[in-house]
Amino acid sequence: MNRDRRRRILGITLGLGVAIAAFGYLAFSSVGENLVYYWSPAELRAEGAKATGSIVRLGGLVEAGSISRDPDGLTLSFSVTDGEASVPVLARAVPPAMFREGIGVVLEGQMGSDGTFTTERLMVKHDNEYQAPGEEEMPDMENLIETLQVGDGSP
C-alpha cells in the first residue's frame, strides 16, 4: 500500500466523519423541537388538545404540598410544575424512594381531556449535587428549575 493511497483514505475518512457529525448536528438541532425527551408543564399546557391521548413524557418538579395518596394505596396524586404552569398528575406506580416534594420527576403517560396527566412510569430525576447528610438543604427553587431546563432543544 503506498503512502498516497493511505493518506487519501485518511482524508476521506476524516471528511466522512466531519460530514456525519455535521449532518447529525443539523438533523438534531432542526428537529430538536420534536425530539424533546420530555415536555415541561407549560409546554404541555400550550399544546392544549393536541397533547391529549398520545404517550408523552412530562418533566418537572413535584410541587410542595401537593402530594397525596389515595385511600386505596395504589394511586398517588401530586402536581408537577416548572415555575410557569403546573399539571395535576395521577400516578399508578410505586414511587422511587427518593420521591419527595421539590424533586425533579419525569413521567411517561397521557394527558387526559380533563387536564390531568396519568402515568404508570414515574422516574425521579437527580441533579448533580452530591452532599453528605446533615448539611442543611435549601429548597432552592430557582436552581432546581434551572437544572430542569438544561437542554432547551437546541445545542
Binding site: T13, L14, L16, G17, I20, A21, G24, F28, G32, L35, V36, Y37, Y38, G59, V106, M123, K125, H126, D127, N128, E129, Y130, T147, V150, G151, G153, S154, P155
Partner: peptide, 29 residues
C-alpha cells in the same frame, strides 16, 4: 474514526438536550 463521532456526543448530550441523566458534576457540586 467513524465510531468516535459518538464519543463527544455522549459527553455533551446532557448539556444540549433534556435527559433523565444529570449533567456532569464538578468538585463544586
Amino acid at each position: 474514526v467513524v465510531a468516535f463521532i459518538d464519543v463527544p456526543l455522549v459527553y455533551f448530550c446532557v448539556r444540549w438536550w433534556r435527559s433523565l441523566h444529570q449533567i456532569q458534576s464538578s468538585p463544586d457540586t
